[in-house]
């Protein structure tokens, strides 16, 4: 598992594990919405205009802008 990428680079349909979140404010906010380090996220949709992206974690759907997704480091999992 060495292929760490930014969440913003993940493709539709990917499963990723959240490894770290660089921005502390962002990480508290994501955590409050159910998205924390160690969770598995599924990339559900990428908006037709390329931004934002829709991910699902633990049964809930979140939409986040690429500028925020860039601060989330994830590792790709096998599908």
């Amino acid at each position: 598992m060495s292929n760490f990428i930014h969440l913003s680079e993940a493709k539709k349909g990917d499963f990723v594990r959240i490894e770290s979140i660089d921005n502390e404010k962002l990480s508290v906010q994501l955590l409050c919405m159910g998205c924390m380090v160690g969770e598995i996220a599924h990339i559900e949709q990428i908006a037709p205009l390329g931004d934002p992206m829709m991910i699902s974690i633990d049964g809930s759907l979140l939409s986040l802008r690429k500028s925020d997704a860039r601060e989330v480091i994830v590792s790709q999992l096998k599908k």
Binding site: N23, K25, L26, Q29, L30, M33, P52, M54, S60, L61, L62, S63, L64, R65, D68
Partner: peptide, 11 residues
């Protein structure tokens, strides 16, 4: 306000 835009998408 925080500049992060994370929105829950309801089912």
């Amino acid at each position: 306000e925080s500049s992060h835009f994370i929105m829950e998408m309801p089912i």
